[in-house]
Design a protein around this nucleic acid. Structure first.
Length: 271
DNA sequence: CTTTTGACCTGACAGC
DNA sequence: TGCTGTCAGGTCAAAA
Protein backbone atom coordinates (compact mmCIF):
# COMPACT_ATOMS: atom_id res chain seq x y z
CA UNK A 1 0.00 0.00 0.00
CA UNK A 2 2.09 2.80 1.22
CA UNK A 3 4.93 4.35 -0.65
CA UNK A 4 7.04 7.26 0.50
CA UNK A 5 4.29 9.91 0.43
CA UNK A 6 1.94 7.77 2.49
CA UNK A 7 4.62 7.02 5.08
CA UNK A 8 5.55 10.70 5.20
CA UNK A 9 1.86 11.51 5.75
CA UNK A 10 1.85 9.11 8.69
CA UNK A 11 5.06 10.61 10.02
CA UNK A 12 3.70 14.14 9.88
CA UNK A 13 0.54 13.05 11.60
CA UNK A 14 2.41 11.33 14.40
CA UNK A 15 5.25 13.71 15.11
CA UNK A 16 3.39 16.59 16.76
CA UNK A 17 1.22 14.25 18.77
CA UNK A 18 3.67 11.74 20.22
CA UNK A 19 7.01 13.51 20.59
CA UNK A 20 7.55 14.31 24.27
CA UNK A 21 5.38 11.44 25.52
CA UNK A 22 6.65 8.33 27.21
CA UNK A 23 5.88 4.79 26.17
CA UNK A 24 3.84 3.00 28.79
CA UNK A 25 4.03 -0.43 27.19
CA UNK A 26 3.74 -2.51 24.06
CA UNK A 27 1.31 -5.34 23.36
CA UNK A 28 2.00 -7.79 20.56
CA UNK A 29 -0.94 -9.98 19.56
CA UNK A 30 0.62 -11.29 16.35
CA UNK A 31 4.39 -11.46 16.18
CA UNK A 32 4.56 -13.10 12.77
CA UNK A 33 5.01 -10.17 10.43
CA UNK A 34 7.62 -9.86 7.68
CA UNK A 35 10.14 -10.45 10.43
CA UNK A 36 9.23 -11.66 13.92
CA UNK A 37 8.33 -8.77 16.21
CA UNK A 38 11.08 -8.65 18.88
CA UNK A 39 9.98 -10.52 21.99
CA UNK A 40 11.55 -7.83 24.17
CA UNK A 41 9.68 -4.98 22.46
CA UNK A 42 7.73 -4.09 25.59
CA UNK A 43 10.72 -4.33 27.91
CA UNK A 44 12.91 -2.17 25.73
CA UNK A 45 10.35 0.55 24.97
CA UNK A 46 8.67 0.83 28.37
CA UNK A 47 9.23 4.20 30.08
CA UNK A 48 11.23 5.54 27.14
CA UNK A 49 10.45 9.15 26.12
CA UNK A 50 9.76 9.68 22.44
CA UNK A 51 12.03 12.36 21.06
CA UNK A 52 11.65 12.17 17.28
CA UNK A 53 9.69 10.61 14.44
CA UNK A 54 11.67 10.32 11.24
CA UNK A 55 11.50 8.41 7.96
CA UNK A 56 13.96 6.54 5.76
CA UNK A 57 12.41 5.50 2.47
CA UNK A 58 9.24 3.68 3.46
CA UNK A 59 10.47 2.98 6.98
CA UNK A 60 9.19 5.00 9.91
CA UNK A 61 11.58 5.49 12.82
CA UNK A 62 10.37 6.45 16.28
CA UNK A 63 13.19 7.47 18.61
CA UNK A 64 12.39 6.50 22.19
CA UNK A 65 15.20 7.07 24.65
CA UNK A 66 18.18 5.01 23.49
CA UNK A 67 15.90 2.79 21.43
CA UNK A 68 14.54 3.30 17.94
CA UNK A 69 11.31 1.65 16.90
CA UNK A 70 11.24 0.69 13.23
CA UNK A 71 7.92 0.34 11.42
CA UNK A 72 7.17 -0.64 7.83
CA UNK A 73 3.62 -0.85 6.54
CA UNK A 74 4.20 -3.40 3.78
CA UNK A 75 1.27 -3.64 1.39
CA UNK A 76 -1.70 -3.35 3.71
CA UNK A 77 -0.44 -1.84 6.95
CA UNK A 78 -2.16 1.03 8.72
CA UNK A 79 -0.95 2.96 11.73
CA UNK A 80 -3.62 4.66 13.77
CA UNK A 81 -3.28 6.90 16.76
CA UNK A 82 -6.18 6.24 19.10
CA UNK A 83 -7.19 8.89 21.64
CA UNK A 84 -8.81 6.39 23.96
CA UNK A 85 -8.44 2.68 24.61
CA UNK A 86 -10.43 0.57 22.14
CA UNK A 87 -10.80 -3.18 21.89
CA UNK A 88 -8.48 -4.57 19.21
CA UNK A 89 -10.09 -5.97 16.08
CA UNK A 90 -8.86 -8.59 13.64
CA UNK A 91 -5.40 -7.84 12.25
CA UNK A 92 -4.68 -5.27 14.97
CA UNK A 93 -1.30 -6.85 15.64
CA UNK A 94 0.67 -4.40 17.75
CA UNK A 95 -0.23 -1.62 20.22
CA UNK A 96 2.22 0.91 21.63
CA UNK A 97 0.56 2.61 24.60
CA UNK A 98 1.66 6.16 25.35
CA UNK A 99 1.12 8.73 28.05
CA UNK A 100 -2.08 10.72 27.73
CA UNK A 101 -4.25 7.72 26.90
CA UNK A 102 -2.87 7.44 23.38
CA UNK A 103 -2.38 4.15 21.59
CA UNK A 104 -0.36 3.69 18.42
CA UNK A 105 -1.93 0.67 16.73
CA UNK A 106 -0.67 -1.33 13.76
CA UNK A 107 -3.35 -3.00 11.64
CA UNK A 108 -2.07 -5.18 8.81
CA UNK A 109 -4.21 -7.90 7.19
CA UNK A 110 -1.49 -9.24 4.89
CA UNK A 111 1.28 -9.04 7.48
CA UNK A 112 3.94 -7.88 5.04
CA UNK A 113 4.63 -5.03 7.43
CA UNK A 114 7.33 -4.98 10.04
CA UNK A 115 7.86 -3.81 13.60
CA UNK A 116 11.42 -3.92 14.83
CA UNK A 117 14.01 -2.28 17.00
CA UNK A 118 17.23 -0.71 15.82
CA UNK A 119 20.58 -1.16 17.46
CA UNK A 120 20.62 0.71 20.76
CA UNK A 121 22.21 4.18 20.63
CA UNK A 122 23.38 3.98 17.02
CA UNK A 123 19.92 3.49 15.52
CA UNK A 124 21.45 1.16 12.92
CA UNK A 125 19.42 -1.66 11.40
CA UNK A 126 20.36 -4.22 8.77
CA UNK A 127 17.31 -3.36 6.68
CA UNK A 128 18.36 0.29 6.47
CA UNK A 129 21.95 -0.49 5.61
CA UNK A 130 21.77 -0.77 1.85
CA UNK A 131 18.94 1.58 0.95
CA UNK A 132 19.56 4.11 -1.81
CA UNK A 133 19.40 7.89 -1.40
CA UNK A 134 16.26 9.74 -0.38
CA UNK A 135 14.50 10.94 -3.53
CA UNK A 136 13.79 14.28 -1.87
CA UNK A 137 17.41 14.68 -0.76
CA UNK A 138 20.31 16.40 -2.44
CA UNK A 139 22.30 13.41 -3.64
CA UNK A 140 19.43 12.13 -5.76
CA UNK A 141 19.63 13.61 -9.24
CA UNK A 142 19.79 12.73 -12.92
CA UNK A 143 23.55 12.21 -12.98
CA UNK A 144 23.32 9.72 -10.13
CA UNK A 145 20.65 7.71 -11.96
CA UNK A 146 22.51 7.95 -15.25
CA UNK A 147 25.78 6.65 -13.81
CA UNK A 148 24.16 3.85 -11.85
CA UNK A 149 22.08 2.68 -14.80
CA UNK A 150 24.93 2.19 -17.29
CA UNK A 151 24.94 -1.35 -18.58
CA UNK A 152 21.66 -2.27 -16.94
CA UNK A 153 19.26 -4.16 -19.12
CA UNK A 154 16.33 -4.32 -16.73
CA UNK A 155 13.27 -2.16 -17.37
CA UNK A 156 13.67 1.38 -16.10
CA UNK A 157 10.53 0.98 -14.01
CA UNK A 158 12.12 -1.86 -12.08
CA UNK A 159 15.28 0.19 -11.81
CA UNK A 160 13.57 3.13 -10.11
CA UNK A 161 11.53 0.82 -7.91
CA UNK A 162 14.70 -0.87 -6.64
CA UNK A 163 15.19 0.35 -3.06
CA UNK A 164 18.94 0.08 -3.47
CA UNK A 165 18.77 2.61 -6.31
CA UNK A 166 16.45 5.11 -4.64
CA UNK A 167 14.38 4.80 -1.49
CA UNK A 168 10.61 4.88 -1.30
CA UNK A 169 9.50 4.78 -4.95
CA UNK A 170 6.89 2.05 -5.39
CA UNK A 171 4.50 0.89 -8.06
CA UNK A 172 2.22 3.93 -8.18
CA UNK A 173 4.82 6.66 -8.20
CA UNK A 174 7.18 4.84 -10.54
CA UNK A 175 4.41 4.75 -13.16
CA UNK A 176 3.48 8.36 -12.49
CA UNK A 177 7.03 9.73 -12.60
CA UNK A 178 7.80 7.86 -15.83
CA UNK A 179 4.72 9.40 -17.38
CA UNK A 180 5.76 12.89 -16.28
CA UNK A 181 9.26 12.26 -17.68
CA UNK A 182 7.89 10.83 -20.94
CA UNK A 183 9.78 7.54 -20.61
CA UNK A 184 8.23 4.17 -21.42
CA UNK A 185 8.41 1.93 -18.32
CA UNK A 186 9.64 -1.11 -20.26
CA UNK A 187 12.66 0.68 -21.69
CA UNK A 188 16.04 -0.74 -20.61
CA UNK A 189 17.47 1.42 -17.84
CA UNK A 190 20.88 1.47 -19.49
CA UNK A 191 19.45 2.90 -22.69
CA UNK A 192 18.13 6.17 -21.33
CA UNK A 193 20.10 9.38 -21.86
CA UNK A 194 21.56 11.64 -19.20
CA UNK A 195 19.10 14.38 -20.13
CA UNK A 196 16.13 12.08 -19.76
CA UNK A 197 17.41 10.91 -16.38
CA UNK A 198 17.54 14.53 -15.29
CA UNK A 199 13.88 14.78 -16.28
CA UNK A 200 13.10 11.59 -14.44
CA UNK A 201 14.80 12.67 -11.22
CA UNK A 202 12.82 15.89 -11.33
CA UNK A 203 9.63 13.97 -12.09
CA UNK A 204 10.15 11.62 -9.15
CA UNK A 205 10.77 14.52 -6.80
CA UNK A 206 7.82 16.66 -7.85
CA UNK A 207 5.43 13.72 -8.03
CA UNK A 208 6.31 12.66 -4.50
CA UNK A 209 6.10 16.23 -3.20
CA UNK A 210 2.66 16.75 -4.72
CA UNK A 211 1.47 13.45 -3.30
CA UNK A 212 2.71 14.38 0.16
CA UNK A 213 0.93 17.73 -0.13
CA UNK A 214 -2.27 15.82 -0.93
CA UNK A 215 -1.88 13.52 2.06
CA UNK A 216 -0.93 10.48 -0.04
CA UNK A 217 -2.92 8.24 -2.34
CA UNK A 218 -5.80 6.20 -0.98
CA UNK A 219 -6.71 3.29 -3.25
CA UNK A 220 -8.09 0.88 -0.70
CA UNK A 221 -6.10 0.46 2.50
CA UNK A 222 -4.24 3.64 3.11
CA UNK A 223 -5.39 6.10 5.74
CA UNK A 224 -3.50 8.59 7.89
CA UNK A 225 -3.04 8.27 11.64
CA UNK A 226 -6.32 10.09 12.30
CA UNK A 227 -8.17 7.87 9.84
CA UNK A 228 -8.21 10.38 7.01
CA UNK A 229 -7.90 9.38 3.35
CA UNK A 230 -5.29 10.88 1.03
CA UNK A 231 -6.57 12.56 -2.11
CA UNK A 232 -3.66 12.35 -4.56
CA UNK A 233 -5.63 9.69 -6.42
CA UNK A 234 -7.47 12.47 -8.20
CA UNK A 235 -4.16 13.69 -9.61
CA UNK A 236 -2.90 10.35 -10.92
CA UNK A 237 -2.10 10.52 -14.64
CA UNK A 238 -1.83 6.84 -15.48
CA UNK A 239 -1.84 4.50 -12.46
CA UNK A 240 -5.05 2.47 -12.41
CA UNK A 241 -6.36 4.32 -15.48
CA UNK A 242 -6.01 1.64 -18.18
CA UNK A 243 -8.35 2.37 -21.08
CA UNK A 244 -9.04 5.91 -19.95
CA UNK A 245 -7.72 8.84 -21.92
CA UNK A 246 -4.26 10.29 -21.39
CA UNK A 247 -4.48 13.76 -19.83
CA UNK A 248 -1.93 15.06 -22.31
CA UNK A 249 -2.82 13.54 -25.67
CA UNK A 250 -6.14 11.79 -25.18
CA UNK A 251 -4.95 8.35 -26.26
CA UNK A 252 -6.04 5.39 -24.17
CA UNK A 253 -3.73 4.60 -21.27
CA UNK A 254 -2.14 1.18 -21.60
CA UNK A 255 -1.45 -1.47 -18.98
CA UNK A 256 1.42 -3.92 -19.12
CA UNK A 257 2.97 -6.32 -16.63
CA UNK A 258 6.62 -5.58 -15.98
CA UNK A 259 8.43 -7.71 -13.43
CA UNK A 260 5.25 -9.13 -11.92
CA UNK A 261 3.75 -5.67 -11.35
CA UNK A 262 1.10 -3.79 -13.27
CA UNK A 263 2.46 -0.79 -15.10
CA UNK A 264 0.52 2.00 -16.75
CA UNK A 265 1.70 4.31 -19.49
CA UNK A 266 0.70 6.31 -22.53
CA UNK A 267 1.99 4.74 -25.74
CA UNK A 268 2.06 8.13 -27.42
CA UNK A 269 3.58 10.35 -24.73
CA UNK A 270 6.09 7.86 -23.39
CA UNK A 271 8.98 6.53 -25.45
C1' DC B 1 27.96 -8.50 -10.43
C1' DT B 2 22.65 -8.21 -12.43
C1' DT B 3 18.18 -10.14 -13.17
C1' DT B 4 14.35 -13.11 -12.37
C1' DT B 5 11.42 -15.91 -9.58
C1' DG B 6 9.13 -17.49 -5.68
C1' DA B 7 7.80 -16.79 -1.10
C1' DC B 8 5.47 -14.49 2.52
C1' DC B 9 -0.20 -13.29 3.75
C1' DT B 10 -5.36 -11.92 3.55
C1' DG B 11 -9.27 -10.00 1.21
C1' DA B 12 -11.92 -8.34 -2.67
C1' DC B 13 -13.80 -9.36 -6.83
C1' DA B 14 -15.00 -11.69 -11.35
C1' DG B 15 -16.60 -15.66 -13.53
C1' DC B 16 -18.54 -20.13 -13.50
C1' DT C 1 -24.39 -19.88 -2.77
C1' DG C 2 -20.07 -21.43 -3.14
C1' DC C 3 -15.80 -22.48 -5.51
C1' DT C 4 -11.56 -21.00 -8.24
C1' DG C 5 -8.48 -17.89 -10.12
C1' DT C 6 -6.53 -13.25 -10.21
C1' DC C 7 -5.14 -9.17 -8.33
C1' DA C 8 -3.43 -5.80 -4.68
C1' DG C 9 0.77 0.96 -2.46
C1' DG C 10 6.46 -4.45 -0.69
C1' DT C 11 10.71 -6.74 -0.17
C1' DC C 12 13.94 -10.32 0.29
C1' DA C 13 16.51 -14.69 -0.39
C1' DA C 14 17.64 -17.93 -3.66
C1' DA C 15 18.31 -19.33 -8.18
C1' DA C 16 19.71 -18.45 -12.89
Amino acid sequence: MPELPEVETVRRGLEPRIVGRRVLGAEVRQAKLRQPVPSDLDARLKHQPISAVTRRGKYLLVKAGRETLLVHLGMSGRLRLLDAPAAPGVHDHVDIRLEGGLTLRLHDPRRFGLVGLCERDTGAHALLQNIGPEPLGETFNGDYLFRLSRGRKAAIKNFVMDSHVVAGVGNIYASEALFVAGIRPSRAAGRVSRLRYANLAWAVRTTLEKAIAAGGTTLRDFIGVEGQAGYFRQQLFVYGRAGQSCARCGQAVKQQRIGQRSSFYCGHCQR
